[in-house]
Write a protein that binds this DNA or RNA. Structure first.
Length: 852
RNA sequence: GGGCGGUUAGCUCAGUUGGCUAGAGCGCGUCUUUGACGUAGACGAGGUCAUAGGUUCGAAUCCUAUACCGCCCACCA
C-alpha cells in the first residue's frame, strides 16, 4: 500500500474494522495471568439509529477498552441491544394507528410477536453503526435484552424477591398515562411548572356550629371534588378545632363527608382547609390511609369521568368536567374566588399527556432493604464516581426512594411470571410459563398477569447477566453512561446487584453529560437540530468524530457539539498521515538507514523525553478518566512537538531507525483515541507487521537529560530569531553571529535550517555587532545593517521596560520575609536564580542600548 | 422548597491536591508555493479568571456573601 497525499478515512475504515473483527482481536484472551478489564456497553435500542450521544459513549468506552488491551489486560467490551420496552412500543403503536388499528384489536401474545418481527426487521442497523464508530466490542457476546439468559435471570430475581417478601401486589396510586394506557415509576414522570388556577370553593356544614356555616377549600383540580371523602384541617389550627368530626355537605353530590384533623393541612396556606381526594392525589391518598377514608375513583383509565362522578359528569373528559363543575358551583353560589398560580404538573415523558394519579393494582418492590445496602456500599466507597459529586446525589435519592412499581401495561417487554386464581383474586402464584395464559394447579385455575416488567427491572441486572459466562469479569471495571441515568439505571444496578450477587456491579462509574447542539440547545427531533453521528463519520471520519467529541469535555457536564473541534481532529489525522508518509519516503530513499550527519542531534533525546512524558501522563489521565486532557496532550505531542520540531530537525540527520521507532510509539499511544487512522498507517508502512490493535504499550526511552535541556535552549534561541526576522522592517533574514559558544557552534546547520538565515558565522566577541538577542548566557547577534537597526531601537526599549517589571515582581516577592521563610526552599532558590539571570540580561541590554 | 453545577481570550471550553509569565481549538492580523501535510508552515495580537469581602508568603484554584445562567429532586392543596 502507498500513502496518498491526504488521508481519506472512508477509503480505509470499513476494511480496517473488518480486519480487526475477523482477527478475533476484540475477544477476551485466554491469558489467565492478565488483569481483567471489563466494560458493559449500555445497550442501544435494537431497532433504532444511533444518535450523537452514542457517539460519545462509544468513544469513551472504546478508548478505555483499546488502551487496556494495549496495556495487556484481558479486555472484554460487551455489546448489547435493548428491546427498549416503552420506546419501541410507542413507535409500534403509532404504526398501528397509521393502519387504523389499536392495541385492543389484538391479544397480548399477538402484539408481542408482531413487535418482535417489527424489531427484527430493523435490527442490525444499530450494530453496523457501532462498527462505523469503531467499537472494539466482542460481538460474539452481544446480548439482547429479551434473550433467554436475561429473562431467566430476571425471573430468578423476581422469585427471590417474592420469596423474601420484597415483592407485593398492591392497589396504590400509580402514575398513569391515559394515552399510552400504562403506569410509570415515579422517576419516569416529567414535572413541569405550569400556570394554573387555584379556586376557592365553599363546603357547607350539615349543622352550623358556633356561627360557622361553611368551610372554604382551595384547589387546582375542582373536578376531583366529586371524589372527596373528607376535608382536613391542621390539628393545631385553633380556628377549626371545634369543627373536627363534624360533617360537611359535599357540593354537587348528595354525599356528606367528615372534617378530619391531619398534619397534611398547612395552617399558613390559604384558608388552612384542604379537600381530601384519596383516589386522585398522592398526599390525599396518604391522608386517606391514616384515617381509613373511603377511596372513590371518579376518573377512569381512559381519562374520562366515570359513573361515580354522577350522571351529570360521567363520560366527560377531565377538562370538560372541570369547566362544568366550576359552572355548577358558581350557579349554586359556592365558588368563592380564583387566583392565578404556578404549580408543578406531571407529564408523560413521551407524549406530554398529563399524568393522572390513579388507583391500580400493581406489583411493587419494597426497595427499602435494597436501598439500605446500596447506601452502605456507597458510603463505604466501594464504587468510585466520576464526577465525584454524583455519589452523594445518588445517596440522597436512595434515602427517600419509595416503593417501585414494576408493572407496565405494555405488551412489549418481559412478561411478569405471575398467575392469579380466578376464584380468589388474592391468590397469586409465581410461574415461569408465561407463554400460557392459563394454568391449572391444585385444582385451581390461574390466569396470567397481562403486564410486563418495567425495563429498568431487567436493565438493572445487566452487569451480572452479561458477564455470566465469564464470572471472573464481574464486578465489571467501569460503568460508563449518561448522567441522566444516575437514578433509574445506575442506582438500580447497584441495588439489584448487591441483592442478587452480594457484590457491587462495577468498581467505577463514569457519567458523561449530554451532547448539545452547536448552540448549546438540547437536541430533539421536533426542533430539527439532531446531529447524526454517521453523517459526521462519512464527512470527516470516525476518528475525527471521536476526538472532536471528547475534546474539552469533562465528566457529567453537558456540552455543545463543535464542528470546529471535529475538523481540528480531522486535520490531526491528516497531519499524522503525512508524517508517516514522509518517514516512509525517507526509509524508502535510504534502506540502509545510515545517518547523514554524525554530530549529535539534541532533538532526538528531546523528542524521546517528550514521548516518555506523554506516555506517563496519558496513563495517569486515563486512570482518572480525563479523556479531553489526554487528547489534548497527544495533539500537542504529535503536532507541536513531533512534527514541528523533531521531524523538521530530523530532515538534516535522517536517522530512520529512530524515526521508525518514535512513529510506532506515537501510533500506539494515539490508537485508543484514533483507532482507524493509526491502524491504517500501521498497515501501510513497509516495515511494520501484525496489527496495531494488538501491540504492546510502549516502554520508555533511555535519554540524556543534558541534551534535552540543550535542545530546549536551542528552541528558545530559534523562536527568538524567527520572531525578530518577522518583525524587523523588511521582514528579511540576516546572518546570525556568535562568539565562543559550543551550543551555537555544534548546531549551526540546524539553526540555519530552522531559521532560514543566510549563514551562522562564529566570530570573535569584540567583532559582534547588530541586534543582540535577549537570551541569557549567550552572545548572539543578528547582523542587521545600521539603518534598519536604528528603526529597531524602540523595540529594545520596550523589552527593557518589560524585563524591568518582571524583575520588580520577583524582587518584591523575595523581599517579603514571609515568602522566604514559608515557601518551599526550591521555589525560593529558583526565584533567586531567575532574578539573577534577568538582572544580568537587563544590564547587557542597557549597555547595548547605549551603543546604538 | 431542597440540592448540584457553571460564570476564565471574539466563540467553545481546559486548568487534579493553592506555587514560576493563566492554556487549547476555532476565529483574527502579518508573512511564507522551504524535500510530508495549504486539512500546511512561521510570527503575532487578544484575559482586572462574574462581583464584593476573607484566609494565606502566595488565590482562577480554599472560605463567605451577592448577581446571573443551567440542571436535578420535591406532596404544597
Amino acid at each position: 500500500m502507498k500513502f496518498s497525499k491526504a488521508y481519506e478515512p472512508n477509503e480505509y475504515e470499513p476494511d480496517v474494522y473488518a480486519l480487526w473483527e475477523k482477527s478475533g482481536a476484540f475477544k477476551p484472551s485466554s491469558n489467565k495471568k492478565a488483569e481483567n478489564y471489563t466494560i458493559v456497553m449500555p445497550p442501544p435500542n435494537a431497532n433504532g439509529n444511533l444518535h450523537i450521544g452514542h457517539g460519545l459513549t462509544i468513544a469513551l468506552e472504546d478508548i478505555l477498552t483499546r488502551y487496556h488491551r494495549l496495556k495487556g489486560d484481558n479486555t472484554w467490551y460487551i455489546p448489547g441491544a435493548d428491546h427498549a420496552g416503552f420506546e419501541t412500543w410507542v413507535v409500534y403503536e403509532r404504526y398501528l394507528e397509521s393502519k387504523g388499528k389499536t392495541r385492543f384489536d389484538y391479544t397480548r401474545d399477538q402484539l408481542y410477536s408482531q413487535v418482535w418481527d417489527f424489531v427484527h426487521e430493523q435490527r442490525g442497523n444499530m450494530e453496523l453503526q457501532l462498527r462505523a464508530l469503531g467499537a472494539s466490542c466482542d460481538w460474539s457476546s452481544l446480548t439482547f435484552t429479551l434473550d433467554p439468559k436475561v429473562t431467566d435471570t430476571v425471573y430468578k430475581t423476581f422469585k427471590k424477591l417474592w420469596d423474601d417478601g420484597l415483592i407485593y401486589r398492591g392497589k396504590k396510586l400509580v402514575n398513569f398515562c391515559t394515552k399510552h394506557q400504562t403506569a410509570f415509576a415515579d422517576i419516569e414522570v416529567t414535572h413541569k411548572d405550569e400556570k394554573g388556577m387555584l379556586w376557592q370553593i365553599a363546603y357547607p356544614l350539615v349543622e352550623p356550629s358556633q356561627g360557622v356555616t361553611e368551610l372554604i377549600v382551595s384547589t387546582t383540580r375542582p373536578e376531583t371534588l366529586l371524589g372527596d371523602t373528607a376535608v382536613a384541617v391542621n390539628p393545631e389550627d385553633k380556628r377549626y378545632k371545634h369543627l373536627v368530626g363534624k360533617m360537611l355537605k359535599l357540593p354537587l353530590t348528595d354525599r356528606e363527608i367528615p372534617i378530619i384533623a391531619d398534619e397534611h393541612a398547612d395552617i399558613e396556606y390559604g384558608t388552612g382547609v384542604v379537600k381530601i381526594t384519596p383516589a386522585h392525589d398522592q398526599n390525599d391518598y396518604e391522608v386517606g390511609q391514616r384515617h381509613n377514608l373511603p377511596m372513590i375513583t371518579v376518573i377512569g383509565f381512559d381519562g374520562k369521568m366515570n359513573e361515580n362522578a354522577g350522571a351529570n359528569y360521567e363520560n366527560l373528559t377531565v377538562q370538560d368536567a372541570r369547566k362544568k363543575v366550576l359552572k355548577n358551583l358558581e350557579e349554586q353560589g359556592l365558588l368563592r374566588g380564583e387566583e392565578k398560580i404556578t404549580h408543578s404538573v406531571g407529564h408523560c415523558y413521551k407524549c406530554d399527556t398529563v399524568i393522572e394519579p390513579l388507583l391500580k393494582e400493581q406489583w411493587f418492590v419494597d426497595v427499602k432493604p435494597l436501598a439500605k445496602e446500596a447506601i452502605k456500599a456507597l458510603r463505604a466507597r466501594k464504587i468510585k464516581f466520576h464526577p465525584a459529586s454524583k455519589k452523594q446525589v445518588l445517596i440522597n435519592y436512595l434515602e427517600q426512594l419509595k416503593d417501585w412499581n414494576i408493572s407496565r401495561q405494555i405488551p412489549w417487554g418481559i412478561p411478569i411470571p405471575a398467575f392469579q386464581n380466578i376464584n380468589d383474586p388474592s391468590d397469586w402464584i409465581f410461574d415461569e410459563h408465561v407463554d400460557k395464559t392459563e394454568l391449572k394447579k391444585n385444582g385451581n385455575t390461574y390466569m396470567r398477569d397481562e403486564d410486563t416488567f418495567d425495563t429498568w427491572f431487567s436493565s438493572g441486572q445487566w452487569p451480572y447477566i452479561t458477564t455470566s459466562e465469564r464470572k471472573a469479569h464481574f464486578p465489571t471495571s467501569v460503568m460508563e453512561t449518561g448522567a441522566d441515568l444516575l437514578f433509574q439505571w445506575v442506582g438500580r444496578m447497584i441495588m439489584l446487584s448487591l441483592y442478587v450477587t452480594g457484590d457491587i456491579p462495577f468498581k467505577d462509574v463514569y457519567m458523561h453529560g449530554m451532547v448539545l447542539d452547536e448552540k448549546g440547545q438540547k437536541m430533539s427531533k421536533s426542533k430539527g437540530n439532531v446531529i447524526n453521528p454517521i453523517e459526521i463519520v462519512s464527512q470527516y471520519g470516525s476518528d475525527a468524530l471521536r476526538l472532536g467529541l471528547i475534546a474539552s469535555r469533562s465528566a457529567g457536564v453537558n456540552q455543545a457539539f463543535s464542528t470546529s473541534k471535529v475538523i481540528a481532529s480531522r486535520n490531526l489525522c491528516n497531519k499524522l498521515w503525512n508524517v508517516a508518509r514522509l518517514i516512509q519516503q525517507l526509509v524508502d530513499d535510504n534502506p540502509k538507514g545510515d545517518k547523514e550527519l554524525t554530530i549529535d542531534n539534541y532533538s532526538e533525546d528531546w523528542i524521546c523525553h517528550q514521548i516518555n512524558q506523554a506516555n506517563k501522563e496519558i496513563q495517569k489521565l486515563l486512570a482518572n478518566y480525563r479523556f479531553a486532557e489526554a487528547g489534548d496532550l497527544l495533539y500537542d505531542l504529535i503536532w507541536n512537538k513531533y512534527a514541528d520540531w523533531f521531524i523538521e530537525s530530523e530532515k538534516l540527520w535522517k536517522d530512520t531507525t529512530l524515526l521508525k521507532s518514535t512513529l510506532e510509539q506515537i501510533l500506539i499511544m494515539l490508537h485508543p483515541f484514533a483507532p482507524f487512522v493509526t491502524e491504517t498507517i500501521w498497515q501501510t508502512l513497509s516495515w511494520t507487521s501484525g496489527m496495531l490493535i494488538t501491540q504492546n504499550w510502549p516502554k520508555p526511552y533511555q535519554i540524556d537529560h543534558k541534551k534535552v535541556k540543550r535542545f530546549e535552549e536551542l528552541k528558545e534561541i530559534i523562536v527568538n530569531i524567527r520572531s525578530h526576522f518577522q518583525s524587523l522592517p523588511g521582514a528579511a533574514s540576516y546572518p546570525i553571529a556568535f562568539d565562543d559558544d559550543p551550543l551555537m557552534y555544534d548546531n549551526q546547520l540546524l539553526i540555519q535550517h530552522l531559521t532560514k538565515a543566510p549563514c551562522v558565522p562564529k566570530i570573535s566577541t569584540d567583532e559582534l555587532s547588530g541586534l543582540r538577542l535577549a537570551i541569557p548566557n549567550h552572545n548572539i547577534y543578528l547582523q542587521i545593517p545600521e539603518d534598519v537597526l536604528n528603526k529597531y531601537k524602540h523595540n529594545l526599549e520596550d523589552r527593557i521596560l518589560k524585563l524591568g517589571s518582571e524583575i520588580n515582581t520577583l524582587d518584591a516577592r523575595l523581599s517579603n520575609p514571609n515568602y522566604t521563610k514559608k515557601a518551599p526552599k526550591e521555589l525560593v532558590d529558583e526565584t533567586r536564580e531567575q532574578l539573577k539571570i534577568k538582572q544580568d540580561l537587563l544590564e547587557k541590554m542597557k549597555a547595548e542600548l547605549r551603543l546604538i
